[in-house]
Nucleic acid binder design. Sequence first.
DNA 1: AATGCGGGGGT
DNA 2: ACCCCAGCATT
Length: 350
Amino acid sequence: MKPTQLPWPTVRQALLDWFDSQGRDLPWRVGPEGRRDPYRVWVAEILLQQTQVARGQVYYGRFLEAFPDVQALAAAPQDAVLKAWEGCGYYARARNLHRAAGLVAAQGFPQEYADWLALPGVGPYTAAAVSSLAYGEARAVSDGNVRRVLARLLGERQPSENWVQTRADELLDQDRPAAWNEAVMDLGATVCTPKAPACSVCPLRQWCAAYASGEPTAYPAPKKRTAAQQVQAAALLIGDGQAAVLEQRQGTLLGGLFGLPLQELTSQAVTPKEALKQLGTRLNLNTKLVEQAHLLGEISHTMTHRQIQLWVYHLPASAAQQPLTQVASAALSRLDHKALALLDAPPRLL
DNA sequence: AATGCGGGGGT
DNA sequence: ACCCCAGCATT
């Protein structure tokens, strides 16, 4: 059956009926349909970018407690915002959200899609989500769930971004755009899942091309991903688990977070010891002192696009040529938490 | 159109 | 292991 021949009013109603009885109850879905609190929806949508709902929900609760409204968020220092985001990944989300909060606190909330889109950290998905869920605007969201649900329903193995957005725009229920958007995403998250879809309970099964094919998981075809880059580095822990010399990372990789001083192994510093020596120079440490640093342990850490091997060396706080930072109050990446954890449970050689 | 950007869950 | 997750910014 061609897509254009599907009985769209019936299909829409089937999904909306399913949503009305089986839709998820989530903490940012407060207030009437299409009139949610824009701040709550906005924060939730940013947190949920490339983050599963179960995980985002934990951070959402913490985040709203720390920053209950946009004025509180705008008034907070960036370090506090990153601390609330610690461990959630993609930290540019937190930096952009904080920056955007400053704009919104001064100018008021955007009232329509195009104005949301202009905020830092807000792209087509988030602008459509907030303008539909909080303002009732008829904008179709296009995310990973929508992509998978529509690719399967319509039998498209290679859905381009443009294909998904166009189909989503066509299918959007004009009378209940907010409910429709939530419905498609709920279906994708709870029934039309990537690996093991629950087709037996799917309200769209009778119209689904992928189900009819007998191989629903073949839609859409897997995306190809670039291999993780292998990185080796030395780190120097000066201090202890309470207070240590920490640097605030610059640039796009973990930017804004604090962490142990690092030196990547290069052609100039082929061994961890040589990288450590370079690190000592950068930190203005006496060469003799650096030679006394002992290897605390070795860490392996994966970050999707990077596979990091890290040798962690240790010196007492008395060696520090710069102020120590209280570890508990700084936002650290998982990598740095692993490095610090070497103090508690030294790995034993077998 | 491709790539970089975290961290963890599901199979 | 591999793929995915309520994407966005940059090139």
